[in-house]
């Protein structure tokens, strides 16, 4: 089994690329691959807890929690996140907080990297 690291930059709401990143991560983890997800830019807004899933909008919390339970490592860029007014106490549990070098370290150990660019 391999290691896949996904860099995810787009916002949760407003396009479907974020949704794609999580679904891909789920498929890879289900197949037994090691999966890491790095959130940067607008994607960091998705680590906020207590998201209300309105049917007209994408939601992240339910899927992130499920991925974490499957052993997927998820880390958010601390600077990007606090710049959006989200503190650790407001965030989904078990999501890691770190700086960009976390992503580069995971990339170093990955067989494949998928960079999903943002706005």
């Amino acid at each position: 089994m391999g290691t896949l690291t996904i860099g995810c930059f787009p916002g949760l709401v407003g396009n479907m690329t974020y949704d794609f990143a999580l679904k891909l991560a789920d498929v890879a983890a289900t197949k037994g691959h090691k999966v890491n997800i790095w959130f940067s830019g607008n994607a960091t807004g998705s680590v906020k807890n207590h998201q209300k899933h309105l049917k007209d909008y994408s939601t992240g919390e339910k899927y992130l929690t499920a991925l974490l339970a499957k052993g997927v490592e998820i880390c958010t860029c601390e600077a990007c996140t606090v710049a959006r007014g989200i503190q650790k106490t407001d965030a989904i549990e078990k999501v890691q907080w770190n700086a960009m070098h976390w992503y580069l370290a995971k990339v170093h150990k990955s067989d494949r990297v998928l960079q999903i660019g943002g706005e």
């Binding site: 940067s40 830019g41 607008n42 700086a99 960009m100 070098h101 580069l104 370290a105 943002g118 706005e119």
Partner: peptide, 20 residues
């Protein structure tokens, strides 16, 4: 947009990746 700047800052972060 923010992405182009994040490209620069992510590349710069190689300076501290050794700790991990």
């Amino acid at each position: 947009g923010e992405t182009s700047r994040l490209g620069i800052t992510h590349a710069i972060s190689y300076q501290t990746v050794e700790i991990l």
